[in-house]
Each structure stands twice: as C-alpha cells, then as structure tokens.
Design a protein around this nucleic acid. Sequence first.
DNA 1: AAAGCGGGGCT
DNA 2: AGCCCAGCTTT
Length: 369
Amino acid sequence: MSHTTTPFSFAQALVSWQRTHGRHDLPWQNTTDAYRIWLSEVMLQQTQVVTVMDYYAKFLARFPDVQSLARAEHDDVMSLWTGLGYYSRARNLHACAKAVVADFGGEFPRTPEQLITLKGIGASTAAAIAVFAYGYPAAILDGNVKRIIARVHGIRTPASAATDKIMWQHANELLVTANDAKKLKLTHAAALRAYTQGLMDLGASLCARRKPQCDICPMQTNCYARIHHLTDDIPPAKVRKVSPEFDVNLYIYQHAGRVWLEKRPSKGIWAGLYSFPEQPRLDVNVNASIDANQDKKDKTNAPRIRHVLTHRILHLQPHIFQLTASQAHGLEDAENAEHGGWFDVDDLKGVGLPKPILGIIEQVLGSID
DNA sequence: AAAGCGGGGCT
DNA sequence: AGCCCAGCTTT
C-alpha cells in the first residue's frame, strides 16, 4: 500500500460523474444499433439535442433500418431534413446508407478507420459510433470536448488546425483505459460508453460556454481555467466576420392549387432542395425583372423576409403570380421542366425545402384560402 | 489552412 | 444581437 496520494484520474472521475449525474434516457441511448447511433450522431453535428429530437423520431419511423434508407428516393430523404439545416448531411447520409448495404453487407464497419471512409463521417463521428455501437476505444473531439480540454489544460490559442492537433492529442491521452475500467469495476466497453457520454454531458451542462458551474464540477481542483479564474477567457472567443447581405427575388407561380418549384443546383446554399425560381435583386434591376414578368399578374407585395445563415444574410422578396392555363403550360416547356415541376401545395411530402421557402408556402396557402 | 454550409436555442 | 451547437467537405 502506497502512502502517496492517488493521482487524479480525469477519466475515472468523469465516468463516475456520468453514471450519477449524466443523461441516460436520450432516444439514441440504450441501444447498440449502429444505424440508430449513426443517424443520431449525424443529426447532432452542429445541432443541439432539443432540435434533433423531433427529426430523429420522424426519420426513424419512416426509415427504421439502413436497408430501408438505402432503398429510399433521394427527395424523400431530403424532405425529412427540411428545416434541420446543413443539408449535405442528408445527401451524405443517403449515400452512406447505400454504401453500407452495397459494400458492408448492411452492417456498419466497427473501426473508426473504416467508418471514416463513409460519406459524412469524420474523425469524431467515427469515434462516437465505434464507442457507442461497439465499445471500441476511440476518442471523440466535438465542441464540448474542445471546451473541456481547453479549460482543463489551459489552451488559449485560437481555433485552428494546429490547435485541433493539440486537442486530438489530449483527447487520446485522456481516454479511459482498460486499467481505469478495472478500477471502476466496469468492462472497458461500458467505461468507454460512460466516458464518451460523460464528455458530452459535462460540456452540455456544468462546463457550458458561459457561467460554468465549477463549484460542483468533478474536475474543479484539476482544471487550469478554474484554478486561474479564467473560465470566461478559455476557450477564447472566435473572431467572426460580418456576413454579407444579399437581396433575392422569389417568383411564386401558382395554378390550380399547385405551385411551381425547381430543384436547386447540387452546390451552394440549399443544394438539392426545391425552391422557387429566383434571381438576385440589384436595385437598378428590380423594375426590369418585374417587367420581364409583366405578362403575368403580380398580385402581391408580400413582405420581404430576412433570413440569417451562418455566412450571409438573405433578404427574400416574394412575388406571387396566379398563372393562366396557357402560362402554366408554358412553364413546363423550355429546359425548366428538367429541374422544375408543379407541386400540390397540400401534398409536399417527399419534397425537401429550405425553411424560409416552407414558411412562404404555408403563408401563401393561408392567404389564398 | 481557410471557407462554405442552416437553423435555432440561449443570454 | 451575438454566440454556440454530439463537424464534415471542399477549395
């Protein structure tokens, strides 16, 4: 028996804390189904738990397993992502499901090295899937973990690739070991699951960005930021550039209870979703663009919508037209028909829509009834 | 290495 | 009104 003090174990303290104070009843917990865990991890990328809840339930009800998702129509998948944002996630999700079925016999691979080869799965998501589905030892590094590591180790360099490299080293060094598990009287797999969940839970609660509750934190005596009263300064605030603003005209063509929508290009904002025909609105051009539609009757001055994205601010000006039968028919010709079509406003299931476009459709629906 | 990519919750 | 969120992909 040694008389020296047992060194503080971050991993053991975290696992113990998670088991008594962490979350245990989230919809994607208490399962080892890699499909469910993968779906939750992708939805949770840059998205808060409370936001994901509803989308997760509806997605699972529609596509309960990887085979059903792999068989799905792409637009059907996109429609379940309407409003959730970062739509490349949905496109990659579908491609990933197809790859799992085609290349892995419908079973998600078990190692981070293999998981990371799949679309939409990066290093952190691969590790989370490997831990939660298979009890495989791998370190995650999400926003929560970065904040915890920055505070515990006093890392004050701004966010960058170089800082991430340091963070990954710490994340791997801190990971709960087989010996830790033994001390905790847990299997290594159980300890890994509690540890990984514990990082997320601690970052989402006590070690929040603002007003961390250090006085009840299991790491309080071993945390650089706490000891030096620097939790407000670590991690350092990110410098954010001013978002450029864009004015956009939206052309809403209606006929016989249907609305004309066009599939957006595969790159850029809202890639692959359906939206109204649009054109940038240069002030000098506003009248010209309206004039170009003067054969149709612009019956609105619908209010302009301000829509904020991460890197830009959009001012969307809807122009609503009720088309005659011949005008409506005219739209179907030309090359428009390749990526556009008439959609029943009462049945937009299976159509992926950007949030503000969905909002406009709902508003227009209400106003014409 | 830096930029692009949504939308919402919270203060 | 600004910051951040169970990040990944493209340039």
